[in-house]
Design a protein around this nucleic acid. Structure first.
Lengths: 341, 341
DNA sequence: CGCGCCAACTGAACCGGATCAGTTTTCGGC
DNA sequence: GCCGAAAACTGATCCGGTTCAGTTGGCGCG
């Protein structure tokens, strides 16, 4: 029972050669249908699974995709985004018996070293590149290695690598027009890390809409941590003419923002409207519940994995834009009370 | 450049046989020190990394550990525990070039199937068993497969598999005595999933302390979701004589609890003290900040990985109890105001 | 009837390491 | 200067699959 079954065992029992069994198991021509059925039945009975190492050594595939996360464990842990993305990816990978290799590293240098090692070790068939930056130094490395990769983010700045993204700029317009319709005139944005493409895309869209509609908009960059989110909020609310609405680039900072407002005696949403980018239970459980940009992250992950699989099959994979996110309105946004405008 | 370097390449360039190169690279006797240095230098120059498949096929190791998470993506995403644990594990695994295979599944049946498949495919050298249950059906499977495993949790109910745990019962005493010292008499516990060992251990400790000190304690089980946390809180606070303190089994439910209190006009901590099991930024960013049981999860993960590595080296690995957690007191707990007791 | 062709199958090589049984070299001791 | 043992190294084999060049057998067809 504790003995692993190999195709040689099946071959012996079926009175066939290893080669024939291999053809039968892989749906290759070269064996009769009746033999194939017999072999398949035996394999099932004997509990055979292909040794992944042997498969990887002879065939082309390692049967695994890699994901490197270059963020602090603290940020990672509290942001639902990553786990949702991962489980989305896996739902697509499960069908093809592809595993996910996860590595949490400190910075991009270690991340690049990981890609090189994985490539040399033939450990993965492809990788997902996450947290795309403007002029990302990881892109040319993956191109040089010819390591199949799907970029989480875009459009642009991912060279020849295919990307999957969500139209952040488009939602930004919806968000800002919504806030403007509520009569907000001074709107602040507590953004994520400067240099990350999605941060820059949102910032540019934010500024364009502000200019177009004639709003007074400010963007402040942070490292996504609730600490910085709280600090920035304090500073914003302490200004002579504080904003009447703040848009946060993730849910955790938005929750921290609500907390600061409480602490400073600022009424939400009466004096201050708060919005979160990315919806999660977090947004629902705070009081007031947060209006949020809700993206289908599970689907995002699924598309990424499906396309990486297609890429390995030699199909031409083009960039893909996910369906646009929805604006989920909850209690944290409202028309500002007379005195505050 | 895009050609992968093998030991045959090194052998050819060094004028040696494959065998000699293998000995040199692995620190085995059989080659002179000067040759070894020369080979090592060449390997470095040529950017050689062992093909993980070939290594796994000939040697014993697959060079990977597996972790299966059988929880809903929603719960996983928002609980910082898992990501912290994972990055702790990896910090110990990085030194030995061991990768982490992550799989998110729906239930224990799929989880067990995953273990069997991994074992048959020789994909992993060992696994971490998480969310241990009383009389866990996964334990006998791993024992039968002789798949090296470290159990996250205990003590007890993990058969012959070594476990690493945190003394929840001990902290429960500290927590309850702290609340009792604040003059709380009616204390509720919003627990996690019934049947999970750590839930049961805490529940038992909770009841024992209540009986000993003479407190009025109630435990309600949930599925860890903020939804249920909120619902249970609403019910508890609607009782004729509501509790003056609630201890939640995770941070997310505690945050939801604060929200419900707000919504019902119950003052925290004046009328109701709230505590979270497991500390995270979440506890710090809500208002009031949550008093919490802070466990060193990173260290937890590190210990688990170190011990699994030791297990593979044939060392005798015994159970291990992590250092006791600390009680981090913040603004959400206080002596209840006169009227409420 | 015999030729050719194709389906069905075999045997061996191969992937890139580890490892072991031999073979050659080195070197110390007498 | 020669012997014997240890050190240094070679060549072959193995791990468990895939794949390809052959081999066999059966059948249709002229």
């Amino acid at each position: 029972m504790t003995k692993r079954v190999t195709i040689a065992d099946i071959a012996a029992r079926a009175g066939l050669s290893k080669g024939a069994v291999s053809y039968a198991l892989n749906g290759q021509p070269g064996v009769s249908e009746s033999t194939r059925q017999r072999v398949l039945r035996m394999a099932l009975e004997m509990g055979w699974h292909p040794n992944s190492a042997a498969k990887a050594l002879s065939g082309a595939r390692a049967g695994a995709f890699g994901l490197v996360l270059a963020r602090s464990p603290a940020t990672l842990g509290v942001e639902p985004f990553f786990m949702k993305l991962i489980s989305g990816m896996e739902s697509a990978m499960a069908a093809t018996q592809t595993a996910l290799l996860l590595q949490v590293v400190a910075d991009h240098d270690v991340e690049i070293a990981t890609y090189r090692r994985w490539w040399a070790e033939r450990r993965v068939d492809g990788v997902f590149l996450i947290d795309l930056r403007c002029d990302d130094c990881r892109v040319p490395v993956l191109e040089e290695l010819k390591l199949p990769a799907m970029v989480v983010g875009g459009p642009g700045h991912h060279g020849t690598l295919p990307g999957v993204w969500i139209d952040d700029a488009g939602v930004m317009v919806v968000v800002m027009e919504y806030l403007a319709a509520l009569r907000h005139r001074r709107i602040a944005r507590v953004a994520g890390v400067a240099g990350m493409l999605h941060t820059e895309v949102r910032t540019r869209a934010f500024e364009e809409v502000c200019a177009r509609i004639g709003l007074d908009g400010t963007t402040v960059n942070t490292d996504y941590s609730p600490d910085q989110g709280a600090q920035v909020t304090r500073r914003l609310l302490s200004a002579a003419t504080p904003p009447t609405a703040i848009v946060y680039d993730n849910d955790v900072m938005a929750v921290a923002g609500v907390s600061v407002a409480h602490e400073m005696g600022v009424d939400v949403p009466g004096e201050l409207s708060i919005m979160a980018w990315d919806d999660s239970v977090l947004c629902e459980i705070v009081h007031p519940a947060l209006t949020a940009v809700s993206r289908d992250i599970d689907g995002y992950g699924r598309h990424l994995a499906e396309r990486l699989l297609a890429l390995l099959d030699g199909q031409a994979v083009t960039d893909y834009e996910n369906p646009p996110p929805r604006l989920v309105v909850r209690g944290s946004t409202a028309r500002p009370t007379a005195g505050t405008v």
